[in-house]
Computed example of a mutant assay.
Amino acid sequence: MTTVKVNDIVLGVESFGADDAPLVLLVGGTTMLSWPDALCERLAAGGRRVVRYDLRDSGESTTGDPEAPDYTLRDLAADAAALVEALGGGPAHLAGIGVGGMVAQVAVLDHPGAFSALTLVGTRAVAPGPVDADLPDHDQATMGRLFSSPMPDWADRESVAEFAAAGAEVLGNDPGAARSVAERVWDRTPGTESQVQMANQLGMVFSRLDCTPRWRERLPGIDVPTLVVHGRLDPFFPVGNGEALAREIPGARLLVLEETATALRDADVREIAEAMLTLR
């Protein structure tokens, strides 16, 4: 792991594979650990230089005030393009997961010369908040259970890990895997301030981030090979959101993971990697 300075901020990055191989840039959602180690390793074994990174206000990247971010979604998209230039591997295959998928869509639209392919995982074509009428919103029963749980003591590693495991069970993910990731995220989070720890674990900064203007109507302008990956069992961004992305991006391929909810499983890694490696 290391850091790279772009756009007057620092981004935490981790690399896999040979430095001279074609670059695959993985946008964290919000930390880089949203991307499983096994997927990074398989892509690297397939002849790619894989770089995953933390968004601002997470991990090893610049931390300000996650409750009042002084940047926008467009700034995060510009970070992705600037990181490709700094790494010297452009144009790159860009992949975003969850809210990182929103960053990736805008990055490809605003900085088309920086990217040669696009992968979108478990995301949607509109910003956090009210959803378009034709897109399925969060499953309300699941969200009710999820958000009725009391917040943990964000300064206590075990409390945070238990909270993550309980939330994973509600969402249909593997509680053990979620606990392990939460512990790793906690260990990488600078300080124990509640708002910083919560931003790293939950990505709550996106609820306060300026994501205007809309970009969904621009999706037909994406002209790079695109893969859309979505879990059939995802209650947070139901699969109809991935289906809409695949319809609206010309030539996009849709890969639905039948047994997957919001988090990528080890069992998914081979299929996802093979699909990503076919993009040029």
Rank of each mutant, 00 (worst) to 15 (best):
A95V: 01
G96K: 10
G96R: 09
G96C: 09
I97K: 12
I97P: 03
V99L: 12
G100S: 11
G100H: 10
G101C: 07
M102Y: 03
M102F: 03
V103T: 09
V103G: 09
A104H: 06
A104V: 04
V108E: 00
D110W: 01
D110K: 13
D110Y: 05
H111G: 14
G113D: 11
G113L: 08
G113S: 14
G113F: 03
A114S: 15
F115M: 06
A117M: 04
A117C: 06
A117S: 10
A117H: 03
L118A: 05
L120P: 01
L120G: 07
G122R: 14
G122M: 08
G122H: 12
T123C: 15
R124Q: 09
A125V: 00
A127E: 07
A127G: 08
G129M: 11
G129T: 09
G129S: 10
D132W: 03
A133C: 02
A133S: 10
A133T: 07
D134A: 11
L135N: 05
L135T: 05
D137N: 08
D139C: 06
T142F: 00
M143L: 12
M143V: 03
G144A: 14
G144C: 07
G144D: 10
G144H: 12
R145C: 03
L146V: 04
S148G: 09
S148A: 15
M151Q: 14
P152W: 02
D153G: 02
D153R: 11
D153T: 02
A155G: 04
A155D: 01
D156A: 02
E158P: 03
V160S: 09
E162G: 07
F163V: 04
F163C: 07
A165Q: 07
A165G: 08
A166S: 08
E169S: 10
E169F: 04
V170E: 06
L171K: 14
L171M: 14
G172P: 01
N173K: 10
N173H: 10
D174R: 13
D174L: 07
D174Y: 05
D174G: 12
G176H: 09
R179F: 08
R179I: 05
R179A: 11
S180K: 10
S180G: 08
V181L: 15
A182M: 10
E183C: 13
E183L: 14
W186L: 07
W186V: 06
W186N: 03
D187A: 13
R188D: 00
G191E: 00
G191F: 00
S194K: 13
Q195D: 09
V196K: 00
M198A: 15
N200M: 00
Q201G: 06
Q201E: 06
Q201V: 02
G203P: 02
V205M: 13
F206C: 07
F206K: 14
S207G: 14
